[in-house]
Amino acid sequence: MISKEQVTHVADLARLEFDEAQLNNFTTQLDKIVDFVDQLNEVDTTGIEPTTHVTSAVNVFRDDVPQKGEGRAALLKNVPEERDGLIRVPAIIDKEED
């Protein structure tokens, strides 16, 4: 069983928040989904290596050569709040924050 406390904890890890109604809804749904994925416990995976990717590539490197980027003006076009060519954000150091 997934508890509301667990859901709240995971939501915090994922930087999401839910109101009470959403929390109840997500807890019920996630409980069902976790219950569904728990059927993997029927499979004996003793000694089986996990597969995290399916290519045979190991580490793919490129030469460390400087390349031209898109440019500051282009990159700033999508910034939600901008001032003087900089990205504007709320105070980062805030005594009330953890």
Binding site: V79, P90, A91
Partner: peptide, 17 residues
């Protein structure tokens, strides 16, 4: 919500952004 895409209105700390 920092460099592109939707940013919520009226937020006053980085975490709440």
């Amino acid at each position: 919500g920092i460099r592109y895409g939707f940013r919520a209105k009226d937020v006053n700390s980085l975490k709440s952004v």
